[in-house]
Amino acid sequence: MSMAVVKPGLFTTVQDSGRPGWRSLGVTAGGAMDSYALRAANLLAGNLPGAAGLEMTLSGAELEVQEDLLIAITGANMTPSADGEELPMWRPVWIRRGTCLKFGSAVEGCRTYLAAAGGIKVPKVLSGRGTDVRAGFGGLEGRPLIAGDLLSAGKVEPERSQWAARWTEKLGKQAAAEGRRWAAPSWYALPEAYAGGGKIEGCHILRVIAGAEYSSFTKASLEALFTAPYLVSSSSDRMGCRLTEGARLERTVQGEVLSRGIVPGTVQVPPEGQPIVLGADCQTTGGYPVIAHVISADLPLLAQLKPGDRVCFKDTGLEEAHSALLIQEAALRMLSAGLGARL
């Protein structure tokens, strides 16, 4: 075993890049809420981007490292530490077996990702290793981690094995030379996915494009959507980020919307008028009116919003949405290429 779970944290699950391809059968695509952070962590830990890692929420886990490991930590800052020494994030970290790897509460952001070379070894179910807690499958028995769970790392993919072996050796020697239980390089990857549409007076701006029922909302509601800030509710989860204390959104027409396939980022408005931004674990179909969609490039920012955070929406177009997403993808590919050069 590679790691033993001493304390699981508030809500820690095994997640990977999700299981698209099964939505037509009612199976949620799932995957890491902040897929940018998980993919970056995987690249830094010597994996392919889609490997399975841990997603911790608001308050992190305490893990006993049982064999020497190459890991990387990205996403929210939960002041990770190794036997009490603070660990750096967004870079490869080598940890000696017997070390206590501990995460605290998120001081910034909401979700922290831990990748280990070889990925977390859990069976593939419907082409994914991630946990679908609502349907109760995938990951570790379809549930969040509990104390006493044992996690194994898998085998490093051939494409990355030379890199992982090189950095394991290099950092292992560095740790020995420094007389420490861990070691990390001074370089790091830049977290480049969280700018969103900017920040005004402490309010995170999520960029949106109009949804199918956009024009069925009242003029006042549409105006309010783009001016009044909303508060992230504590009942938010991987299914949806629930927003409260903002303007009540009302439609000019009543009547039901026929269910259709929906995707993460969809901003739906239930009858009480407070919007819900759907997350990675959203159901495959939905019948609430859709006022807008948060653009894909801003989903990492959405994943890092915590209860009490303030958000505003800003109107944008498909052209800008796609270009922002392609820039983010390019950043990950640059990271991958840059790591290849550090062999």
């Binding site: 695509a29 995707v263 179909t285 392609l326 993808e329």
Partner: peptide, 21 residues
């Protein structure tokens, strides 16, 4: 193509912008 989800007379197609590019 990531998913094709039929529901009543509607079909939702989920695509991967990077691959389409």
């Amino acid at each position: 193509l990531l998913d094709a989800v039929p529901a009543y007379a509607a079909l939702t197609v989920v695509y991967e912008p990077y691959q389409l590019n």
